[in-house]
Nucleic acid binder design. Sequence first.
DNA 1: GATTTGCATTTTGCATGCAATATGGCCGCG
DNA 2: CGCGGCCATATTGCATGCAAAATGCAAATC
Lengths: 239, 239
Amino acid sequence: MTASGALAINRTNLHTAVTTRLRDLIVEGLIPPGARLNERVLCEQLQVSRTPLREALKVLAAEGLAELLPNRGAVVTPISIAEIDHVFEVLGPLEGLSGELACTRIANEQFAEIRALHFEMLLHYNRADRGEYFRCNQAIHHGINRAAGNPVLQASYGALNARVRRARYFANLTQERWDKAIVEHGQILEALERRDGARLRRILEIHLKNKRDVVIMAIEARLRANDNEGAALAFAPCD
Amino acid sequence: MTASGALAINRTNLHTAVTTRLRDLIVEGLIPPGARLNERVLCEQLQVSRTPLREALKVLAAEGLAELLPNRGAVVTPISIAEIDHVFEVLGPLEGLSGELACTRIANEQFAEIRALHFEMLLHYNRADRGEYFRCNQAIHHGINRAAGNPVLQASYGALNARVRRARYFANLTQERWDKAIVEHGQILEALERRDGARLRRILEIHLKNKRDVVIMAIEARLRANDNEGAALAFAPCD
DNA sequence: GATTTGCATTTTGCATGCAATATGGCCGCG
DNA sequence: CGCGGCCATATTGCATGCAAAATGCAAATC
């Protein structure tokens, strides 16, 4: 047995670290959609040489977070309504599958963790702490996904989710929508507790559909603002 | 309009070409599951330097076709029942979604293409030409997928499909299963012609489930054979 | 005899240099 | 004044060199 025990130190490769770091920067919106990814500049900022950086860029391109323009460098994939819509369309069945499988495979211990996250989320909701709310929210969905016990599903879902998470950083949740999301999350927890896979699937798909509508509307609003002010930035009007 | 018309010459990057070539070699089984991907050897065979090769390996790893062992090189992802099962589990809803969307979005012209492929496939079936049959089969599924008009779906489906296609090269289709597959394909064409999305979804999901069973059984048989002969090769018994 | 330690070889990881390509501004020309 | 070609610069694409890590083998130790 190779015993990948708890005490093993994990020195990670530089290219892996760079990929992770860049992915975070893009997903969190710190490098905005459409921004150029100049190799020299990034090398200086991340204090690495071009080789691991270039390897990271190739991976991010494969994940759909960056686009490689031959001989002209890379850019963060611009956000467009069409692209986000397409991602949500695929995300739907994956989220549904995730819920259905979780109901058949989740361990009591895992459920307890998700329940704890749920009530922590309620706390942040009552305090109107959006940042912490989002964190718990993501953690819950991630937990359900993990409980589905399918690493391929987890990876696929995670990659697609990263692509839309970028867009959420300017989707300003209305109070009305927030209230509704909380109700939906109550139903999610209830269905999961009963291990009612069919029901959890339905709720999750509706929940995602609502999230989609909010995000799409936010992007539309942003696009209109860009049009009016001419302060075009990082947004692809179509395609 | 940037007119990515038919006349544009596409000089592709070396790393892109290498990625494509290696991916094909792995998917077609010419580099078998579990095989080591030695950089120096591959460089000589493909006549490229290590830089583009390494970039390709990173991408293939992100796609799940290769595994990177830190400081110990890369191997073609071994085939295991668990992994294939997981991939099929995710592929199901994607295939279903693909059919449903295709029914709402397919153009008559695209349908005609798929119908032509269908009858060409019947021809190869009658001649018992497995190779050509598989080619048409893949082309039909790819066509439906394309007709769904969602590039994100197409990419996700394509990546997962590549992972299981490797396993099909030793799944020896029985005549019985082949006959049944042909019947199912008739139903697929019929549902698509009627633009009956719900029905096409159901048929495609059943079709995929049957395919899964064949592939899993083939892998099990292969694993048993390996166990008996001790001629262990490229297969992970579990995990 | 089994296990471990040390060394030589192989292989990966990363940095850098050079050639090829794109970009932007300038000048000449119409 | 507008337009197209040309050169300087910046940037990417690829090849290669060097250091670090892993592997295999042999010798030494218990």
